[in-house]
Amino acid sequence: TRVETATETAWISLVTALHLVLGLSAVLGLLLLRWQFPAHYRRLRHALW
């Protein structure tokens, strides 16, 4: 049971790290898009909202 718990903890930390990385890359990508294509971003936002 001790090994299982350790594996579970490792998986949880791995998944958390993955989610953090994905979230950060998504935010960075959005910022980059907004910085590179302001007109396109505004049009996209206008279409979405």
Rank of each mutant, 00 (worst) to 15 (best):
T1R: 12
T1L: 13
T1C: 11
T1Q: 14
T1E: 11
R2G: 11
R2I: 10
V3D: 00
E4C: 09
E4N: 13
E4H: 12
E4A: 14
T5S: 00
T5F: 02
T5V: 03
A6V: 06
A6D: 07
T7N: 10
T7S: 13
T7K: 14
E8G: 06
E8Y: 06
T9N: 10
A10Y: 04
A10S: 12
W11M: 08
W11I: 08
I12S: 07
I12N: 06
I12C: 06
S13P: 05
S13R: 10
L14S: 02
V15R: 04
V15S: 05
T16K: 05
T16Q: 03
T16Y: 05
T16A: 12
A17E: 02
A17W: 05
A17H: 02
L18I: 05
L18P: 05
L18Q: 02
L18K: 02
H19L: 03
H19A: 02
H19C: 01
H19E: 04
L20V: 13
V21M: 11
V21W: 01
L22H: 04
L22P: 01
L22Q: 05
G23H: 00
G23F: 15
L24W: 07
L24F: 10
S25W: 00
S25L: 08
S25C: 15
A26L: 14
A26V: 13
A26M: 13
A26N: 03
A26F: 15
A26H: 01
V27E: 04
V27C: 10
V27W: 10
V27R: 04
L28Q: 02
L28D: 04
L28C: 04
L28F: 08
G29P: 00
G29V: 14
L30G: 12
L30A: 13
L31F: 12
L31I: 12
L32Y: 06
L32G: 01
L33E: 03
L33Y: 06
L33H: 05
L33S: 03
R34N: 03
W35A: 11
Q36A: 15
Q36K: 14
Q36T: 15
Q36I: 15
F37W: 08
F37K: 03
F37L: 09
F37A: 07
P38A: 14
A39G: 15
A39V: 15
H40Y: 09
H40Q: 15
Y41E: 07
R42I: 09
R42L: 11
R42N: 11
R42W: 10
R43T: 11
R43Y: 08
L44E: 00
L44W: 08
L44F: 12
R45S: 07
R45C: 06
R45V: 07
R45N: 00
R45M: 07
H46W: 00
H46A: 09
A47R: 12
A47K: 11
L48K: 04
L48W: 08
L48V: 11
L48R: 05
L48D: 05
L48A: 06
W49N: 09
W49A: 06
W49P: 00
